[in-house]
Amino acid sequence: MIEFARNARLWFAPEEVRREGSTPDYRFSLANERTFLAWLRTALALIGGGFAVDQFLPDLRWGWRVGLALALLAAGVLCALRAVNHWVRCERAMRRGEDLPVSRFPALLGLVIAVVAVAMVVVVLVGWEG
């Protein structure tokens, strides 16, 4: 968490990132940028999923519907913030010539999505019966 806060300063400071190390091959930077954008799309998809749950499952009880929608929206927020954080860390590691940072986040997100999917199945089945 402290590491996250320290990196957050770099999010707004291009000169501080560029001061360190040497500029890597532009293709590596572009690949990093595309990875960042892919994560941003994942975040947008989660946010869109939140809207979709709210709009296209009107038969669900209010609590379930809003709870699920808010959970998806929160996952989208986390994903977007993590995307920019990971991008900065990769950019810095490439400039310093260090190993790229590893992350538990993809596994975590995968698990959360799986849990939400199972919850959806249960909710839809219960919703039909009730």
């Binding site: 770099l10 999010w11 707004f12 400071a13 291009p14 990132v17 500029t23 532009y26 930077s29 572009l30 990093n32 940028e33 960042f36 941003l40 975040a43 947008l44 946010i47 989208g76 927020v77 977007a80 913030l81 995307a83 920019v84 991008w87 900065v88 950019e91």
Partner: peptide, 17 residues
Amino acid sequence: PSSLGPPYATAAALCTV
């Protein structure tokens, strides 16, 4: 092309948030 500047990346992510 030069690499993406942090303000752009941050702005894009904050728009999403």
